[in-house]
C-alpha cells in the first residue's frame, strides 16, 4: 500500500466517504491530526497476527427470533410528531439540483 498523502483531493474524498462537509479550518486541522492518528494506529501493522481469526464472539451461536408479529404504537406516535405529509416523512430529493 503506497503512502497516503494528505492532499486536498484526499480530504475531499474523506468528506465524501463520511458525508461530512468540512470548513477550511477543519480541513487544515484534519490534515495535521490525520498524520498523528495514522502514525499511531500504524503500530497495528507491526503486530504479527499469523494464525488468528478475526472473530472472538463470546457466545458460540446466536439465537434466532420466532416469527410472531408485535405492533409498536410508540414508534408511530414518535413519527407523528414530525412534520408529516399525509402520514409520509418528507425528505430531500435524490436527484442533484443544478
Amino acid at each position: 500500500m503506497k503512502k497516503i498523502e494528505f492532499t486536498d483531493d484526499f480530504i475531499k474524498h474523506l468528506e465524501w466517504l463520511a458525508r461530512i462537509e468540512l470548513e477550511d479550518s477543519e480541513k487544515k486541522r484534519l490534515k495535521e491530526e490525520l498524520a498523528l492518528l495514522l502514525r499511531y494506529i500504524d503500530d497495528v501493522l507491526s503486530i504479527d497476527v499469523e494464525g488468528y481469526s478475526p472473530y472472538i464472539y463470546p457466545k458460540p451461536s446466536m439465537e434466532l427470533r420466532e416469527d410472531i408479529p408485535v405492533s409498536d404504537e410508540d414508534a408511530y406516535s414518535y413519527l407523528s410528531r414530525l412534520a408529516l405529509e399525509e402520514g409520509f416523512v418528507k425528505g430531500p430529493v435524490v436527484i442533484k439540483k443544478k
Binding site: 408485535v70 408511530y76 413519527l79
Partner: peptide, 20 residues
C-alpha cells in the same frame, strides 16, 4: 417483529425503533 404484511396500510404505521 413488525408485521411483514405492509401493503395497504396507512404510511408509517407498520414501524418500530429497529426498522426506523
Amino acid at each position: 417483529s413488525c408485521s411483514a404484511d405492509y401493503r395497504g396500510k396507512p404510511p408509517n404505521t407498520n414501524i418500530c425503533p429497529v426498522c426506523l
